[in-house]
C-alpha cells in the first residue's frame, strides 16, 4: 500500500536506464501491483502475469515517461490495462471507458434495512465473513469494481483513480458510490440472514 512506498526514486535515473534504481522501483511497488492483479483477476497465475508484464512494459516505456502523473499512478495504469487484456480474453465485452456509462445515472436504491453494523468484529471478520465480502467484491460489475479496487482497496485518491482509469472525477465518484451501495446490499443480505438464523437458534 501507498504508505510503504519509498518517495526518493529518481525519475531521471529511471529514464536513463539505471538498473539499481529500477530494482528499487520494483521492490517498492511489486506487492501492491500483485495484490491489485489478484483482486482484479482472482487467481495467482494471472496476477503474476500482470505483475511481470507491468514491469516489462514499464521498462520499455520509461524513457518516454514524462512524469506528469506519479510513478505509482502510471504503473497502476499499465497494470489495469494488462489485467483488462487478460479479462477480455474470456469476455470481450469488458469495457470500463467513460462511454460505457449508460447505467451511471441510475441511482441504486437501498432495499435492505437490517442494522448489522453493531455485530461484534470477530463475527464480521470471521473466515466466513471475509469470504462473503470477497465474493461480494468479485460480483461487482467490472466498471464499478475497478474504481472500487483502486479507491477503497489500493487507497488511491479520487483524482489518481480517475487518472489511472481515464475517467472523469465525477464518473469515479458516481461509480464508487454505486459500488459501495451494491456491496452494502449484499453484505446486509448476508448478515441479515445470519442474524435471523441466530435468533431462531435462540
Amino acid at each position: 500500500m501507498v504508505e510503504t512506498i519509498i518517495q526518493d526514486i529518481s525519475i531521471e535515473a529511471l529514464r536513463n536506464g539505471d538498473r539499481a534504481e529500477f530494482a528499487q522501483l520494483v521492490d517498492a511497488y511489486s506487492a501492491p501491483i500483485y495484490r491489485l492483479g489478484l483482486r482484479m483477476l482472482g487467481n495467482e497465475q494471472d496476477a503474476e502475469d500482470v505483475l511481470q508484464n507491468t514491469f516489462l512494459s514499464a521498462l520499455t516505456h520509461l524513457p518516454a515517461f514524462e512524469g506528469r502523473s506519479s510513478v505509482l499512478t502510471w504503473l497502476y495504469r499499465i497494470a489495469v490495462n494488462e489485467a483488462l487484456m487478460i479479462l477480455r480474453r474470456g469476455k470481450p465485452e469488458v469495457n470500463i471507458d467513460d462511454t460505457d456509462s449508460s447505467d451511471d445515472n441510475d441511482q441504486i436504491s437501498p432495499t435492505q434495512f437490517v442494522d448489522w453494523s453493531a455485530l461484534p468484529e470477530d463475527e464480521l471478520l470471521s473466515a466466513e465473513g471475509k469470504q462473503a465480502l470477497d465474493t461480494a467484491i468479485r460480483n461487482l460489475p467490472e466498471n464499478l469494481r475497478m474504481v472500487f479496487l483502486l479507491r477503497d482497496i489500493q487507497d488511491l485518491s479520487i483524482k489518481d483513480t480517475a487518472d489511472t482509469l481515464n475517467l472523469t472525477e465525477v464518473n469515479v465518484k458516481v461509480r464508487l458510490l454505486r459500488a459501495r451501495l451494491l456491496l452494502r446490499e449484499q453484505l446486509s443480505y448476508y448478515y441479515g440472514e445470519r442474524m435471523k438464523k441466530e435468533k431462531s437458534n435462540g
Binding site: 464480521l124 467484491i137 477503497d152 452494502r184
Partner: peptide, 12 residues
C-alpha cells in the same frame, strides 16, 4: 452499514 462495509474492506 455503508460505513461499516468500507471499514471491513480496509480491515480485511
Amino acid at each position: 452499514t455503508t460505513r461499516k462495509t468500507i471499514d471491513l474492506v480496509h480491515a480485511s
